[in-house]
Amino acid sequence: MSASRTFRVLPGFRLTLGYTLAYLSLIVLLPLGAVFLKTATLSLAEFWTVVSAPRVVATYKLSFGMSLAAAAINAVFGLMLAWALVRYAFPGKHLIDALIDLPFALPTAVAGIALTALYAKNGWLGQYLEPQGIQVAFRPLGVLIALVFIGLPFVVRTVQPILEDLDTELEEAAASLGAHRWQTFRHVILPVLLPALLTGFALAFARAVGEYGSVIFIAGNIPMVSEITPLMIITKLEQYDYTGATAIAVVMLVVSFALLLLINSLQAWTASSGKTGTGRDR
């Protein structure tokens, strides 16, 4: 490895790295830097007034609260789905496996209007839920459902490969030592899955916090009730309040960067525990 630093056989290092850095700076880094520069034109007190306004704080509560709830729901049901897809044989399995990625492939606006068609007052499901007193559309619950839709594949796709790599021997050993199936799951399988499960949870959460398209239709965007933080940025922009929009964007960016760092370390943990804990290739 270190030899190649002094003598590189392959050509194109300067060209490709130079191009990579130039393109990255031009498209991503400089524009993102603009957000922070723009915020610097605000005094700290002004910044604080914008980001702590009651209507804005209500959007944080909704966005972060519902994103956490959606990620938690996805962690539970995503794990069950991954388990079913890996451990059981059933008809239509390959089709369902392929469709798990639908939220990645389906444009968010399409998901948004489809979910609204299902959960609106006179919608497919809404017409049965409404008489029970369960309002989904235009309520926080609607936001939650959109975020569950958007986050599900993150959990399934991070847990699935780890489940596939699990050794049968581990569980056989547990069973031969007298463990019940539940004990085996709780004390043998779950600890191995935990890093991947947490990674999937964090990925789903990070995606949900920034999500816009699939949420705004079903949310109805009622101030103080069902407004999400990304929508607040758009609202400020539409009022030509660029600094206000930017201040809120900075709050979201700081949270996103913190999540990115967390996810990176979680993924490193997943990779290392995947190698030591399991793996048929050992």
């Binding site: 990255l24 993102l32 603009a34 920034g210 398209g213 660029y242 979201m252 996103s256």
Partner: peptide
């Protein structure tokens, strides 16, 4: 660090992705 930077656009809300260009070119 470079790999992390390349990943950045995935962790930025799409709304902010639009906003940054408005701040520059708007």
């Amino acid at each position: 660090f470079l790999i992390t930077l390349i990943d950045l656009p995935f962790s930025v809300s799409p709304v902010i992705a639009g906003l940054i260009y408005v701040l520059i070119f708007g």
